[in-house]
Amino acid sequence: MAEVTDSMAHAPISSEKFDLSVEQVSLHFETPNGVLKAVDEVSFGVETGRFVGLVGPSGCGKSSLLLMMAGLQKATFGDIIVEGEPLTGPRPQDVGVIFQESSLLPWKTASENVEFPLALRGVDKAERKQLATDMLKLVGLSGFEDRHPFELSGGMKQRVSIARGFCQDPRILLMDEPFAALDEQTRMTLGDELLRIWEGHRKTVVFVTHSLTEAVYLCDDVIVMSAQPGRILERIEIDLPRPRTYETMATADFGRLRDRIWRLIRGSE
């Protein structure tokens, strides 16, 4: 990963300590019953290298917020500042997205899928093939480079998605419930894998999930949102030591944090 920096070197960030900053962002929809405030005046910042989770009941606007941070959805009001500049559209060198399941191009092989973002940027075929092979190895899929998605299990497909997200080497990675469609066991394994890769590359991560356990296990901070209007209830720091393991989940601190988030969400409904 570190080898990919040359052509996409980043301008030094000035005094800005946030990689990503969401400022007074609202997303309103006109409906026959009036204005729906999917996201309502949400502000938060994400410091460099931090793993931040977004949780909340369905309809709290966490996925919409993520789309806006990816530059795929225009905010009705407010700004999203990435590395000091307001976002006006997708900025793949800075922000990468890992989507929910079935986001792989089904007609391309695992390797071609990982190469896809690089191919769009015109990276040389041999170079991107090498990078994809390395990334697939990192997510434990060596030997599966030439398989098509229909020949892979759900967990393997999501590993390819993760490899694709990391392969283009953005500073910020947004993940939209990447493990939602997986079974519990695969979800746990992939969570550990994700942490392992992240420890190695220290991307700034925003991770949307509806699993509180997953949020507490993975994140440095968890932002808890309420639905209609989609607002931030509280930002909770997860001060559990890293590296976290399966045993971490059995500790009293872990239970206490998850419990606190649960009460916040339930109380808002």
Binding site: P90, L105, F116, P117, L120, Q168
Partner: peptide, 24 residues
């Protein structure tokens, strides 16, 4: 979803047509 994926990776309109729409 595939259209979103390609757009998030910065695909322009031509790339969207040739890389996503046509094969899909």
């Amino acid at each position: 979803t595939l259209i979103k994926v390609a757009r998030s990776y910065g695909a322009n309109r031509w790339q969207l047509y040739s890389q996503i729409f046509l094969p899909a």
